[in-house]
Design a protein around this nucleic acid. Structure first.
Length: 277
DNA sequence: ATTGAGACCTGTCGGC
DNA sequence: TGCCGACAGGTCTCAA
């Protein structure tokens, strides 16, 4: 589920439950996610008030009244849901819901009376208390929707990089928050081939090449649109331009191409061999 | 210093 | 129907 637009949607869902509220109870249903929870995790959260709830790339960041930073990454399959009441007993059996609750790994009971539950079947997510200036947070590239991320910034960051453009977009140090879906989407909108060496959109004669302008604009457009649609998952939001559309006709005006799927760095790339150059 | 491959997990889907 | 492999929205580590 989660790339930048989906994480942003989760953040907005969480605001009414968590912002300005404190942790009344914290329950860990297992000792680890991708990594163990840090020592004293429950104790350090309990009673703390959430002062800010922001997003950096694909990370959610809560600054607590104690000064601690609660950091949450949703991994591949993580999400957070907000519920009004604890649903512990007296409910009719619902096999589908029971199955899902098997992966409720962390529960926050907030002073708003709302419960926030972290669910993550694959357990690639991370929850930690850490310094915002430290890696990986400190090594993230610019926020793609910020002013600071423009053609010049992108060009500077891909200079001398021999990896393909697609793989470069997945590197969170170059730009933060893009994942496998929106990398393919942005390249298609920008009509740039995923195979190109990243450095081919770098600076020449002191100015970013045209590809860098198109690509930054496409990244912003694709992400803004997805945020506007509430992100994407199986059941809602985005109709993708190319992602998961192998064999379908290309959506670019006047293009007769057919969407292809290939693998780069172990991940699927969807693209149009005709209009992406 | 970069880069690719493999590891970490569970679930789902399509083919036989 | 059941079994099996391929694949899934992300990092992280390790060897070349």
């Amino acid at each position: 589920m989660p790339e930048l637009p989906e994480v942003e949607r989760v953040r907005r869902t969480l605001l009414p439950a968590m912002l300005g509220a404190s942790f009344d109870r914290v329950v860990l249903n297992r000792p680890d996610l991708r990594r163990p929870f840090p020592a004293g995790f429950v104790r350090r959260l309990r009673g703390q008030r959430v002062q800010t709830l922001t997003r950096r790339g694909k990370y959610l960041l809560a600054v607590l009244s104690s000064g601690d930073f609660l950091v949450i990454h949703l991994g591949m399959s993580g999400w957070l849901r907000v519920e009004r009441t604890a649903t512990l007993h007296g409910r009719p059996r619902d096999p589908a819901a029971d199955l899902e609750r098997r992966h409720d790994h962390v529960v926050f009971k907030m002073s708003t009376g709302l419960t926030v539950t972290f669910n993550d079947p694959r357990r690639f997510g991370v929850m930690d208390l850490m310094d915002a200036g430290r890696p990986p947070l400190g090594t993230l590239g610019p926020e793609p929707l910020s002013r600071a991320f423009d053609a010049r910034a992108l060009a500077g960051r891909v200079a001398n990089r021999r990896v393909s453009l697609k793989v470069a977009l997945l590197d969170q140090r170059i730009v933060a928050g893009i994942g496998n879906i929106y990398a393919s989407e942005a390249l298609h909108l920008a009509r740039l081939s995923p195979f190109r060496a990243a450095a081919t959109v770098a600076t020449r004669a002191g100015a970013p090449r045209p590809g860098a302008e198109r690509l930054t604009a496409a990244i912003k457009a694709v992400l803004r649109r997805a945020i506007g649609l509430g992100g994407s998952d199986r059941y809602r939001g985005a109709r993708f331009r190319v992602y998961d559309r192998e064999g379908e006709p290309c959506a670019t005006d006047g293009c007769r191409g057919v969407i292809a799927r290939i693998v780069q760095a172990g991940r699927s790339t969807f693209y149009c061999p005709v209009c992406q150059r």
